[in-house]
Design a protein around this nucleic acid. Structure first.
Length: 802
DNA sequence: ATTGGAATCGTTTTT
DNA sequence: CGATTCCAAT
């Protein structure tokens, strides 16, 4: 396959007929009673009014568009989501397009869910159900599952998340005897991910590899693929890559899908990577009913493979495309919008867009200089308190954004001190928690016997006497005898390298696994020894998925393990496991409701398990972060995209932080940083605070900071600057100098080799000292008490003549 | 098999 | 500063 980079039409040999709509053709989907009702003219007129009445002319133009390619360039707060949902409804209700011809793709499950909810209010439940509203990844997972046979993809494949990938990569490097010090697993994975996003498989990557490093990556890529295949697993990027390959190599499947998905809509088009771009265009190539919505100025995932050119070049790909610009902003005040607009104008690689609003001027954007991050947090607490008390703003209408998660800590402390309720949109989601990952790993192992990565994760958690040594022995045996590891574990007596204790433990564990598989109705073609301890008494086939998950959690020992977890005083982990069971119950309920609605028989336990696991892999944010809840929301700028708050504060607007230091050298990265700033600013409806500190402690290192260059790019008329850093409240600059000089004194007071006496530790010798303001420390070797690091200010040291 | 100390290294993260 | 990870010691 030639490198597909610059080929906008991946299936170039395709004829491109402008296919007329043929409504009579029935695609797979609900039966005929779902046909759109005939509308009386009056009814149709009424419907039309209701659908279009409250729209502006450009919005209406987008909503009323039916056939052919269309690009909707939607500025922030311009009613994009409304346009998309309204168009879906319009297609179905007014143009009689069967709902199963509609495919709308979003990037997050949350967005997909919201779209479904909004559409569902305007069409019948059956119509809503028949539409495909999903994420790229869910769609791909579904297509791959449906056509697994075409790809020799055994059913029940696992979807590997980052931590699974890491394990697989470590295994890969071990196999290849490559030192992970020289070739860090993360870096390998990221190179492979980039390759996959560019639709380069291992062979294609290899033939393009020129230098030593790239050739090594090529080797690693190839082996990594083998590892995944052996484990019957796909990673996230594979979902896209394999789907594109499926469509490329199986013309009949492609035709089937093109016929089915006649109206394709892709949201956040500026964030599509090459694979997603090719996939979308492959589906739409025949009928060309592709609607792309997005905003190039909000493209902030370039570092993750998103290609902003996909949206910028839409007109080139589709010369006759209709272009609609949504430039009116309904969200922000004039001041805020003017600041955002002026900022983004500084970017060169962009199409012109003129943002405007009918909203009032509002308060000017507060641009505040503070002493340090503490002062910054205190200032914001003060401001938010004011907004809450005097302007009766709800806490839930306020948010604080930062570039890096690590900046949240100080803000958190300040909010907690002031007893202001807050929530953090944190990076670690529900399914990333250890205990959940453990439980899910068990379920994956049960569902997919080939999944060695999860098997090995689970085999000794909780510990059951199978150590690293034993695992290595099993792996070695499996390798030399060319047998899958799970089979070796099931019959470990032949592995001479194992102690008999380990052998017994393994046999017991294997029996346990087999009994779960039998319970789930997954026949693995292996007999279950009925008498083994694995077959616990009183185990009856659980009728429900939730019951099954519960059983596994209990019988695996995870329950007691986490119940007695002394490392964690708050036994939140057990509750989380309980939540996993509830989410299984919920999944089951939804699946059953769905099936009965379409008159299909209910899913079996094993089918339920597979679909549950797929959901677990692809749904990450269970704890949805919204503006609800009456709490101030703290999150990264990236996480803020798509949200809005009445009052927004952005902290750390300093060179090296907001244009992040890693972006300073590259123009394109600098522009992405600017877009990130733009995204942050445009989240604010009424109030916006931009703060920067004179000095800031990052990674324990206090450094002078200078205001972000982005602040200089804001128009004077819409901002109000305030320098609070000189205000005296006992912390004037002289004090800092004083502290620093004291630190110097203390440090020079105890040069290396000085003998000292400590009231508790006795005699010791100074190994070294580190100057760090008041926190100047000395490392001291006490023969009686060992080596200690002490803060000179507090340690009551006495010099000893030596 | 657990634990503690030392060493290391720091963006962002829709799936 | 901190989280993570790795190795050595019990």
């Amino acid at each position: 396959m030639p490198p597909p980079h610059d080929d906008p039409h991946p299936f170039a040999d395709e004829p491109h007929p402008f296919a007329p709509r043929t409504d009579r053709v029935r695609a797979p989907g609900p039966a005929a009673d779902d046909a759109p009702p005939r509308l009386s003219p009056e009814h149709a007129a009424e419907l039309k009014r209701r659908l279009l009445d409250d729209l502006t002319p450009p919005q209406r133009e987008a909503v009323e568009h039916v056939d052919g390619p269309i690009l909707v360039l939607a500025g922030p707060g311009s009613g994009k989501t409304r346009v998309i949902t309204r168009r879906v409804v319009n297609l179905v209700l007014r143009h009689g397009i069967a709902p199963w011809h509609v495919l709308a793709i979003t990037f997050t499950n949350k967005a997909a869910g919201e779209m479904r909810d909004r559409v569902a209010k305007q069409v019948t439940p059956r119509q809503a159900r028949a539409m495909t509203l999903s994420t790229f990844h869910s769609l791909c997972a579904r297509l791959l599952r449906e056509h697994a046979a075409r790809l020799d993809l055994p059913p029940g494949y696992s979807i590997y998340d980052t931590s699974d990938q890491n394990r697989a990569m470590k295994q890969t490097l071990e196999d290849l005897e490559i030192n992970p010090k020289n070739f860090p697993p993360q870096q390998m994975l990221s190179s492979i991910s980039n390759a996959k996003n560019d639709l380069l498989d291992a062979a294609a990557y290899s033939s393009a590899a020129a230098d030593f490093y790239t050739r090594t990556v090529a080797k690693v890529y190839k082996r990594y693929e083998q590892v995944l295949t052996r484990n019957n697993a796909l990673d996230f990027d594979d979902l896209l890559l394999k789907t594109v390959q499926l469509l490329r190599d199986h013309r009949d499947v492609l035709d089937l899908l093109r016929d089915r998905f006649r109206y394709v809509m892709i949201d956040e088009y500026q964030d599509t990577n090459h694979a997603q771009f090719v996939l979308a265009n492959a589906l739409a190539a025949e009928h060309k009913n592709l609607m792309a919505t997005g905003d190039p100025d909000q493209s902030i995932y370039g570092w993750r493979g998103a290609n902003i050119r996909n949206i910028l070049d839409f007109e080139t790909h589709y010369p006759n495309a209709k272009i609609v610009r949504l430039e009116q902003n309904y969200r922000s005040t004039k001041s805020i919008l003017a600041a955002a607009d002026a900022l983004i104008q500084q970017n060169t690689a962009r199409h012109h867009k003129s943002l405007w609003t009918d909203n009032p001027d509002g308060t000017r954007v507060a641009c505040v200089t503070v002493r340090d991050e503490r002062h910054e947090a205190e200032y914001l607490v003060e401001q938010f308190q004011y907004l809450h008390d005097k302007e009766s703003l709800d806490w839930g209408e306020m948010a604080i954004f930062y570039r890096m998660n690590s900046l949240s800590r100080v803000v958190e402390d300040a909010l907690r001190n002031a007893t202001i309720p807050y929530q953090i949109a944190r990076g670690t989601s529900f399914y990333d928690r250890k205990e959940i990952k453990d439980a899910v790993a068990y379920l994956r192992t049960i569902a997919n016997p080939a999944d060695e990565v999860n098997l090995l994760r689970v085999v000794n958690t909780p510990t059951r006497g199978i150590g690293d040594k034993s695992i290595k022995a099993v792996q070695a045996y499996a390798m030399t005898h060319n047998e899958p590891a799970d089979r070796v574990i099931a019959d470990p007596m032949g592995v001479t390298a194992l102690s008999s204790r380990a052998q017994n433990a393994m046999a017991k564990f294997a029996a346990q696994l087999a009994s779960w598989r039998a319970m789930a109705g997954l026949e693995q073609g292996r007999h279950v020894e009925p008498g083994l301890p694995g077959g616990l008494p009183g185990v009856v086939e659980p009728p429900t998925l939730a019951g099954f998950v519960e059983t596994v959690i209990r019988e695996s020992g995870l329950e007691t393990y986490y119940a007695n977890d002394k490392g964690d005083p708050d036994s939140e982990r057990l509750a989380n496991l309980g939540e996993l069971v509830s989410s299984a119950a919920q999944h089951e309920e939804e699946a059953h409701a769905d099936r009965s609605l379409s008159g299909e028989p209910p899913l079996s336990l094993s089918e339920l398990l597979l679909s549950f696991l797929e959901g677990v892999s692809l749904v990450s944010d269970v704890d949805a972060v919204g503006s609800e809840g009456g709490q101030v929301t703290l999150m990264t700028l990236h996480a803020a995209k798509g949200l809005e708050f009445s009052a927004v504060a952005m902290v750390g607007l300093e060179d090296g932080l907001l244009p992040h230091s890693r972006a300073l050298a590259s123009d394109s990265e600098m522009q992405e940083e600017r877009r990130l700033c733009f995204v942050g600013i445009t989240r604010a409806m009424h109030r916006l605070y931009l703060t920067h500190a004179r000095r800031r402690t990052v990674f324990g290192q206090t450094q002078a900071a200078i205001a972000s260059r982005f602040l200089q790019e804001l128009p004077d008329a819409s901002i109000e600057c305030d320098d609070l850093s000189e205000e005296t409240d006992g912390f004037d600059d002289g004090y800092g100098d004083y502290q620093r000089s004291r630190a110097q004194d203390r440090q020079s007071e105890y040069p290396e080799g000085t003998l000292v006496r400590h009231p508790q530790f006795g005699l010791g010798k100074v190994l070294n000292t580190t100057a760090s303001g008041a926190q100047t420390r000395a490392r001291i070797d006490f023969p009686d008490a060992g080596k200690k690091t002490l803060v000179l200010q507090y340690a009551r040291l006495e010099k000893v003549a030596g």
